[in-house]
Write a protein that binds this DNA or RNA. Structure first.
Length: 519
RNA sequence: GUGGCUAUAGCUCAAUGGCAGAGCGUCUCGUUGUGGCCGAGAAGGCUGUGGGUUCGAGCCCCAUUAGCCACCCCA
């Protein structure tokens, strides 16, 4: 083609051609007007944000996959998800609005992941955030919106999977499990949902990351104390274990000081001592860890129809002496969804749901395509009551969700309900000689004023090849303008499909085309 | 991040280590102002990129980039 070699497309992104472009625009516009009907106002936030916005709450997985870079002394990123960006904009501009504030959006997000089937490095999220409302009515509205949005664009085969992170967090609080290990467990909750090997995979991971936990052969108590510790230092450790917090801390500092070891690293002295103490005490965590794993395993089995799962969860809560609050929230939420008329067969409860974003604090949900497609998960969302505060705002409850637009497209394609906008011109105007040029331009404009899509032949070519062109592009009507037509002050309208022609005035031609094209 | 398969014309693919080809698409022509078929012709390639082995590499070896698939995670 040329002496330069072709520049390749950047990995994991795609060019969207007119067929898909039209369909995607249609989906996006349908969803947004659906949201408008519930009072959600559109908000477009920038693609570029400070990386810091995501570092705190987005979850390690997303942070690791951010397009994150240094530019002129600023650390910037391409947004990896919409919620944090929308909340940032809300706190900048909108937080004096009366609550609740309802916002919706559609925009590109970027994640540096290995591209695959329904996974791209640039993809489009379409979603809503409902800010300043707690409770089942808010969550119900969000889930209802997510489902009816699918109904509206024509996706019929889907399943709503609902969970609640509060059950697990409350249990972990209840038994007093340490922070880092605790978020590790929450993050890996999903593993247990897998049939068969999920549990042992989780245990392996724990052991890899925390080698001080020894595996045991007893499945009901999978970890035991690391017995290698039984040397002389064990006595010291035992002593420290039996002191209270401040006493132990002072003892360690004094001990180091007496050996002339100074803590002159960059880290805070207290932090170092804290970590040391918590490591020493780690084996105290073992019974808790075992208990947590047992509980998580039980919880992950609670998966099925709402009634069954709720009943079993009640029993579980009783056995572990847990607060019923999250279960009651779920029951209320189901009531709300029922009032909205949700098809109950499309609802599944899955108390093992934990989701990758770490900012979720309560009810959560995902919707899966159950049709024969590669779309998989169509959307996800839930309650995030801490995020706004974490981003520097007042404590404000909030919920939201986002669809993956590309996946909606795949699902619709699989269900063969794709509505694709038409970009093909309806009329081709063909001037035969130079004398007809200015007339042709004027006529083409008049047709466009009637909201028709009109092309004019601008290549020097014969009538024959212009007709051939119209045929190949699928243009249904052509207007031929030559000396004959000009003399009669008329146009020649040719209908390509039937190969019929008529000589008529422009108004008649326009009326004819509009009638044929609009219906 | 781990593992497997692949890369030749715009697209789909050929070519024993020895002249880089076909079909489709694009453009022109088959004589006056009329398209789908048919016929003739043209354009289009440093064989993804960079090294190596060889008298000689599209083919063998190494690296790299990109694509597909399975894990993992997500939208």
């Amino acid at each position: 083609m040329s002496t330069f070699h072709k520049i390749q497309r950047v990995k994991g992104v795609s060019d969207v051609l007119s067929r898909e472009y039209g369909a995607r625009q249609h989906i996006e516009q349908q969803l947004l007007s659906h949201f408008y009907q519930y009072g959600y106002a559109p908000l477009a936030s920038p693609i570029l944000e400070h990386s810091e916005l995501y570092l705190r709450k987005s979850g390690e997985d997303i942070i690791a996959r951010m397009y994150d870079f240094q530019y002129r002394n600023r650390r910037l990123c391409l947004r990896p998800e919409m919620t944090a960006s929308i909340i940032r904009a809300y706190l900048d501009q909108l937080y004096d609005e009366p609550m609740p504030t309802r916002l919706c959006y559609a925009g590109s997000v970027f994640r540096y992941e290995k591209p695959q089937r329904a996974r791209y490095r640039q993809f489009t999220q379409v979603g809503v955030e409902l800010i300043g409302a707690s409770g089942a009515l808010a969550e119900g509205e969000i889930m209802h919106l997510a489902c009816t949005g699918l109904d509206r664009i024509g996706i019929q085969q889907y399943q709503l999977v609902m969970g609640h992170i509060g059950i697990l967090t409350e249990f972990l609080n209840h038994i007093g499990l340490e922070g880092q290990l605790r978020s590790f467990l929450i993050f890996n909750m999903e593993l247990l949902r897998k049939q068969g090997q999920g549990l042992s995979e989780l245990l392996d991971r724990i052991h890899t990351i925390y080698p001080m936990f020894q595996r045991s052969s007893d499945d009901s108590a999978p970890f035991t104390e690391n017995t290698l510790n039984e040397n002389r230092s064990q006595k010291l450790i035992d002593l420290l274990k039996h002191m209270d917090e401040s006493e132990a801390r002072q003892a360690v500092i004094d001990f180091l000081f007496s050996l002339n070891i100074t803590l002159d690293s960059n880290r805070d002295e207290n932090e170092i001592v804290d970590r040391l103490l918590s490591k020493i005490r780690r084996d105290e965590q073992i019974p808790r860890l075992n208990k947590a794993i047992q509980f998580m395993h039980d919880l992950s089995q609670l998966n099925g129809t709402a009634e069954t799962v709720l009943r079993e969860a009640e029993r579980l809560a009783e056995a572990y002496e847990l607060s019923r609050a999250p279960l009651e929230q779920i029951a209320q939420l189901i009531q709300v969804l029922r009032a909205y008329g949700l098809d109950q067969t499309k609802l599944t409860l899955d108390l093992g749901l934990s989701r990758g974003l770490q900012y979720y604090t309560g009810a959560m949900f995902e919707i899966y395509h159950t049709g024969k497609s590669e779309a998989g998960q169509l959307c996800g969302g839930g309650r995030y009551d801490d995020l706004i505060h974490t981003l520097g705002g007042p404590k404000t409850p909030a919920t939201g969700f986002a669809y993956g637009l590309e996946r909606l497209y795949l699902a619709l394609e699989a269900e063969q309900h794709l509505k694709t906008a038409d970009f093909i011109p309806q009329v081709l105007v063909i001037p035969l000689e130079g004398e007809e040029l200015s007339d042709s331009i004027r006529i083409a404009q008049q047709l466009r004023d009637q909201a028709l899509r009109v092309e004019m032949t601008i290549r020097e070519r014969s009538l024959k090849s212009s007709l051939q062109y119209a045929d190949r592009r699928g243009i249904p009507y052509v207007l031929i303008l030559g000396s004959q037509e000009r003399a009669a002050d008329q146009v020649r309208l040719r209908e390509m499909g039937t190969r019929t022609e008529s000589l008529c005035d422009l108004t008649t031609a326009i009326r004819h085309i509009k009638e044929a094209v609009n219906v």
